[in-house]
């Protein structure tokens, strides 16, 4: 005889625990307060409860009960909207905005993590049931935990995103000043910005850095050309290394431009911490956004054109 209570409880705990593990402050710098954690943990608890209830409902031949999963999907879409709204609202207060593409990506990740919690709970209950079925009644809790953990680990590894470091080579170089009065800031002969004020030029000379992101192939080139992706890189670097910038001082705004001939992305900025290794690491760890990901090499025309 299967103890449904034990099975459901185990699945709910494992599902919620999965969400807790994924709920850490990472490069996105969000969420950072207990309120945010509570919101996500509560919803994860609900998600795992729904996932945990599926198998008992099936076993009791209460098939209609599975339709409650439809309600769950609606809930999680609510999470996505909540995250998107929040991040879009605070966009105006960011010196260096995240950009819509990045926000959309973050919102999607938050939504999918709830599904992950639900799947973890579901598979844990499957594991519990399976061990019960083959007769190892004493092992069913351990079995549920093991199967749930393995599947979650596999799913999480599969769901991990590419990083800029995977698709491009990154270097930090000095800025060049070209043109009349040396007013044109450039990196590797690509003019990025024209700075008129002497004071601003001095600052750029003293502490400005240029970042070169060289795409490894045509897919990477198309991906990096997306302005949302470039904004995400700038935002990540700035949020990790700081930037000398304030409202009304536009001259120090970090900018990203591409070289039309080589597809290389050049970023100029004045970081608080001019440590080159750290800058390279921050760029490398920036996720490749789903919205900007392109794969022209996967198409026939794209492959022919790349020859």
């Amino acid at each position: 005889m299967i103890k449904y209570g034990e099975m459901i409880l185990l699945a709910v705990i494992l599902g919620t625990f999965t969400r807790l593990l994924l709920l850490r402050v990472d490069y996105r710098q969000y969420p950072g307060y207990p309120h945010g954690y509570i919101v996500h943990l509560t919803l994860a608890f609900l998600a795992s409860s729904l996932g945990a209830l599926v198998l008992p409902a099936m076993l009791e031949e209460n098939y209609v009960a599975v339709t409650i999963l439809g309600a769950a999907v609606q809930q999680f879409r609510g999470i996505r909207n909540m995250e998107r709204d929040f991040l879009s609202q605070i966009e105006d207060t960011e010196l260096v905005p995240r950009g819509q593409a990045y926000i959309e990506g973050i919102a999607k990740v938050f939504e999918s993590r709830n599904y992950l919690a639900m799947i973890a709970a579901l598979l844990t209950s499957f594991g519990y049931y399976f061990f019960n079925l083959i007769g190892y009644n004493s092992l069913n809790i351990a079995g549920g935990v093991i199967i749930g953990t393995i599947v979650v680990y596999v799913l999480y590894t599969l769901m991990s995103e590419d990083h800029v470091g995977d698709i491009a080579e990154i270097r930090v170089v000095d800025l060049e000043f070209v043109g009349p009065n040396n007013a044109n800031l450039s990196v590797e002969d690509t003019v990025i910005m024209n700075v008129g004020l002497k004071e601003a030029k001095e600052s750029w000379k003293k502490s400005g850095v240029g970042i070169v992101i060289a795409p490894k192939d045509d897919n990477a080139r198309a991906t990096l050309a997306n302005t949302g992706q470039r904004q995400a890189i700038i935002h990540d670097v700035v949020s990790q290394l700081g930037v000398r910038l304030d409202v009304g001082v536009q001259d120090y705004t970090p900018l990203a431009r591409i070289n039309l001939h080589t597809g290389r992305v050049y970023i100029i900025m004045i970081p608080m911490e001019p440590d080159r290794e750290c800058i390279i690491e921050a760029v490398r760890r920036t996720p490749v956004l789903e919205a900007s990901r392109r794969a022209p090499l996967a198409t026939k025309a794209g492959r022919m054109a790349s020859d």
Partner: peptide
């Protein structure tokens, strides 16, 4: 003017 209007100064070179 740049600070007051939150605009950027560009040098046309001439």
């Amino acid at each position: 003017i740049s600070r007051l209007t939150k605009s950027m100064v560009h040098d046309l070179g001439n």
